[in-house]
Simulated scan of single mutants.
Amino acid sequence: MNMYVSNLGFHVTEHDLRKLFEAFGEVTSAKLVMDRETGRSRGFGFVEMASDNDANQAISRLNGKEIEGRSISVAIAKEREERPARKKW
């Protein structure tokens, strides 16, 4: 199951994210979304876990938990919607 994690502190690394979720089971991937221009974290990312049971437990235990002084949000990730192509000027 793929989860969306938001309101992360800008110092949280992908390694930190993986370790946080590994307490609940096998993490198959942990990715932070980075700003293209600055290379800094945008404060959100995605974590995928092998087991839906483990993922649901992680959601219920981590949603609202304070990490680095911020209350994180954890939810099931929605499928990405197709957006129309941008016009290039």
Rank of each mutant, 00 (worst) to 15 (best):
M1W: 01
M3H: 07
M3A: 10
V5T: 07
S6Y: 13
S6Q: 14
N7V: 03
N7W: 08
L8E: 10
L8Q: 11
L8M: 09
G9C: 12
F10K: 14
H11T: 15
H11N: 15
H11M: 13
T13C: 04
T13P: 00
E14F: 01
E14L: 03
H15E: 12
H15Y: 13
D16L: 13
D16A: 13
D16V: 13
L17K: 07
L17S: 04
R18I: 05
K19A: 10
K19P: 00
K19D: 13
E22H: 05
E22Y: 02
E22T: 13
A23H: 12
F24E: 07
F24K: 10
G25C: 09
E26P: 02
E26C: 08
T28L: 05
K31V: 14
K31H: 13
K31L: 07
L32R: 11
V33N: 04
M34P: 08
M34S: 11
M34N: 09
D35F: 03
D35P: 02
R36M: 08
E37D: 12
G39L: 05
G39S: 09
R40W: 05
S41H: 01
S41P: 02
G43F: 03
G43I: 05
F44Y: 15
G45P: 03
F46L: 09
F46R: 10
F46E: 06
V47D: 03
V47W: 07
V47P: 04
E48W: 00
M49F: 01
M49D: 04
M49A: 11
A50Y: 05
S51C: 10
S51I: 04
D52L: 10
A55R: 00
N56E: 12
N56Q: 12
Q57C: 10
Q57F: 07
A58Q: 08
A58L: 03
A58G: 10
S60P: 04
R61G: 01
R61Y: 11
L62M: 15
L62E: 10
L62F: 13
N63D: 15
N63Y: 09
G64H: 09
G64S: 09
G64I: 07
K65D: 02
K65R: 15
K65Q: 14
I67Y: 08
I67H: 02
I67D: 04
I67R: 07
E68D: 15
G69S: 09
G69Q: 06
R70Y: 09
R70W: 10
R70S: 06
S73Y: 14
V74H: 10
V74G: 09
A75R: 08
I76S: 00
I76R: 05
A77N: 01
A77F: 01
K78S: 01
K78N: 03
K78F: 00
E79Q: 00
R80D: 00
R80P: 00
R80Y: 03
E81R: 08
P84Q: 04
P84K: 05
P84G: 05
P84C: 02
A85F: 11
A85Q: 06
A85C: 02
R86C: 03
K87N: 14
K87G: 10
K87P: 04
K88H: 12
K88N: 11
K88S: 11
W89G: 04
W89T: 06
W89Y: 08
